[in-house]
Amino acid sequence: MAGGGPPFSLGVETHEGLAALTRAIRAEEDGKQLRKELAANMRDALRPGAAEAKSSIMSLSSAGLPTAPALRSSVARKIRPEVKLGGRWSGARVKAFKTKNVRGFPNAPKRLNRAGGWRHPVYGNREIWVQQHGKVDWFDRAFEGREGHYKEAVEAAMENMAQRLAARAG
């Protein structure tokens, strides 16, 4: 780049900016450590959103008999920020992962968030099935009105790393 500036664009708010930042980090001698640091900073920016989503699922009413393992807390444990810097998808998001081995209900996060709910047999009796509804949009409502804040926090982490790399190059 002419003018002695950094070899990448500092406008990292786009996917192309993230890809350019990742390439610039790879070119550095301590690139692996810088990548880990960038990913950690981006995850830290999303942690409050993950905590809000966990709080939202835990506020779901529970009217059934106590069974183990508890569905709400199992789903809450599977909510976490995810960052990928390369490959087919690059970016940062808060994700509710599948709940394997939880009462035979691996899609619990998705079904609890859906208006249609899910069908299940009554106490294992395959003759009687019921339709059950969760708290509609519990996951989506946790981020309502705050999407911009989380996006800005992730972009600030990316911009901070870009500035550090620019200072090294300059």
Rank of each mutant, 00 (worst) to 15 (best):
R93D: 13
G64I: 02
Y123M: 06
A153N: 01
N160D: 02
A76K: 05
S61A: 14
H149D: 04
A167K: 05
G104T: 04
V75Q: 14
F8Y: 02
V122F: 11
G17P: 03
A153C: 01
A50S: 14
M58N: 11
F139T: 02
A20M: 06
A153T: 00
H133Q: 15
A45Q: 04
F105D: 12
E13L: 04
T22L: 05
G134F: 00
A142T: 02
H133R: 15
G87N: 15
R119S: 08
G49N: 10
R35H: 15
S55L: 09
A50M: 07
E152S: 03
A53N: 12
G86N: 15
R126D: 12
E37R: 02
V154S: 00
M1K: 13
D140M: 01
V83C: 09
G5P: 03
P109I: 15
W118I: 05
A24K: 02
G148S: 04
N101S: 10
A162G: 01
W118C: 08
A2W: 05
R141N: 08
Y123D: 12
E155G: 01
E52T: 10
N160R: 00
W129E: 10
W129Y: 09
G17C: 04
G91K: 12
R146W: 03
S9T: 05
G87A: 13
S90D: 13
N101G: 07
K135P: 04
L60E: 10
T14S: 11
P106N: 15
H15G: 07
L46S: 09
L18W: 01
